[in-house]
């Protein structure tokens, strides 16, 4: 009896100390965000919100990241399916490449993209006749976001497909479904929740991108770049309301989408 209580006590101790350690980390995330939001002056906040430059940069950011997510959906989800369902030579390599954007410094990514998509770059010149340019243009923002954030969608989709028993598709085939239909009617709906939350993560990661985007496109200006400009040219007081707006708007959308995704099943 005595040994048992000593034992439970030590388990309690461990839990309490872990809670304290973890709590410090959570506080470290929440405190600065709350501080920024709560200490802002509503009057200035309102004026900033009516600032056309701010509004258009936020719209540009959301919309560019959405396009990047759309491109990754069309190309990355099929790749995720392959990775989940088949084995082929070089699979490990591809999985490594997918994780690469997390490892490479994002300003270096911007430089690398500029080499290829810049006015003198191979792809930059290839797209020029189509009227698509990447430097100081929306397509540049989109590819920068795509590069740094696609990892989230591909990995989430791969895990989603991997969690669907391949025999469910096999049964569907015996019931008369073609390979496409088995994918569309069985595996895709079952993996959708993972795919959708991967899309949310990717989109959120894309719209917070600064380093890669600023190198390709200073103008048009995405919200994180605008925030940086205001901070460096006018100081903290001018940057703060914009920071608040960005934090709040991202939180609202992120939480909203997470709730939709959670309700899905």
């Amino acid at each position: 009896m005595r040994t048992l209580s000593v034992h439970t006590l030590s388990v309690q101790w461990m839990r309490v100390s872990f809670f304290i350690l973890g709590g410090m980390l959570i506080l470290f995330i929440v405190w600065p965000l709350m501080q920024t939001v709560l200490s802002s002056n509503p009057q200035i906040l309102w004026e900033t919100l009516l600032d056309r430059e701010v509004l258009s940069s936020i719209a540009l950011t959301f919309y560019s990241s959405l396009i990047a997510t759309g491109i990754a959906f069309l190309t990355g989800v099929p790749l995720a399916y392959l990775l989940a369902r088949s084995t082929f030579p070089g699979k490990r390599l591809i999985e490594g490449i997918i994780d690469l954007p997390i490892v490479v410094p994002h300003s270096a990514v911007g430089i690398a993209l500029l080499m290829l998509f810049g006015r003198q770059g191979v792809l930059g010149r290839a797209f020029a006749p189509l009227g698509i340019k990447f430097v100081s243009a929306v397509p540049g923002i989109v590819i920068a976001m795509l590069f740094v954030s696609m990892t989230f969608l591909v990995n989430a989709a791969r895990d989603g497909f991997a969690s669907v028993d391949p025999r469910l598709e096999k049964v569907a085939r015996t019931l008369g479904a073609s390979q496409w239909k088995a994918l569309w009617r069985v595996s895709f709906p079952l993996a959708w929740r993972s795919i959708f939350s991967g899309m949310i993560l990717m989109w959120a990661r894309g719209l917070s991108e600064f380093g890669a985007v600023i190198i390709l496109s200073y103008h048009p200006t995405v919200a994180p770049v605008l925030l940086y400009t205001r901070f460096t040219s006018y100081g903290l007081d001018y940057a703060r309301p914009l920071a608040t707006i960005l934090i709040v708007s991202c939180l609202v959308v992120f939480v909203g989408l997470r709730m939709v995704a959670g309700r899905h099943r």
Binding site: D165, R167, L168, K170, V171, A172, R173, T174, L175, G176, A177, S178, V186, P189, L190, R265
Partner: peptide, 20 residues
């Protein structure tokens, strides 16, 4: 022949019902 054109019914040990 592709499985969907054989009309052969299949029942797995662990049923494999479509959960959705």
């Amino acid at each position: 022949l592709a499985p969907e054109r054989r009309r052969i019914g299949f029942v797995y040990q662990d049923y494999m019902l479509f959960p959705h």
